[in-house]
């Protein structure tokens, strides 16, 4: 890890964008304490701290994939602001909000990002719900192929199809069913 002390955050961001797992891991370990502290100080458990933090890191990672995205603050501030907002929302949903948030870092409102984050979260949850509704064997086939990137051969063996063409035909049938579910409650973004 010692050689991974880049001069600036820009350098980090570049490395993370380039898909270097070590850079992401370094970032993950560096900023966890601050956010964990925030969640624990505000009525949360360490498991919740982990979930909220990971969600913030995922959001940050996804933002980095957007070529137009420019970070206008420190990574720490970005993560803290997003985690703070996620946690406030969760507290509201869990009805554990005590009306008094203890902050120990600067944070920014990120109005624009937040609506985008909410929208992505909604898309994510909806796709998961559709997958759940799909039923077997379609769920396993599509999850293996699209989410776990399994090969058609592996799926054929697992599901017991006689050949890959059969498996493929089945996969496309499932895809059509998923599409139907997906558009049943589709709201234009």
């Amino acid at each position: 890890m010692t050689k991974l002390k880049p001069p600036s955050e820009t350098e980090w961001i570049r490395q993370i964008k380039a898909g270097q797992a070590e850079a992401l891991q370094f970032l993950y370990e560096k900023h966890f304490p601050s956010i964990s502290h925030f969640i624990l100080a505000n009525n949360g458990t360490s498991d919740e701290a982990k979930d909220v933090y990971q969600e913030s890191v995922i959001i940050f990672y996804e933002k980095l994939q957007d070529p137009d995205f420019v970070l206008h603050c420190q990574i720490k501030t970005f993560l803290y602001s997003i985690a703070r907002r996620l946690w406030l929302k969760q507290l509201g949903q869990k009805q554990r909000f005590l009306g008094n948030i203890q902050d120990h870092e600067a944070f920014l409102p990120f109005e624009e990002e937040l609506s985008e984050i909410d929208e992505k979260e909604a898309r994510f949850l909806k796709m998961e719900a559709c997958m759940q509704k799909l039923g077997e064997p379609c769920r396993t086939i599509l999850q293996d192929f699209y989410l776990h990137k399994a090969s058609m051969q592996a799926i054929r063996d697992k599901m017991g199809y006689t050949d890959t063409d059969n498996a493929k035909t089945q996969k496309y049938k499932c895809l059509q069913r998923l599409k139907k579910l997906f558009f049943q409650e589709y709201v234009k973004p």
Binding site: L24, E29, Q54, F124, Y146, K149, L178
Partner: peptide
């Protein structure tokens, strides 16, 4: 449909990667 499938795939993969970081930490 594919865009959302890709989103879910990326998130799940990243999540398991982060779980690994967390355990190591």
């Amino acid at each position: 449909l594919f865009a959302d499938l890709a989103l879910v795939q990326q998130r799940k993969q990243l999540k398991s990667q982060l779980d690994g970081f967390h355990a190591a930490m």
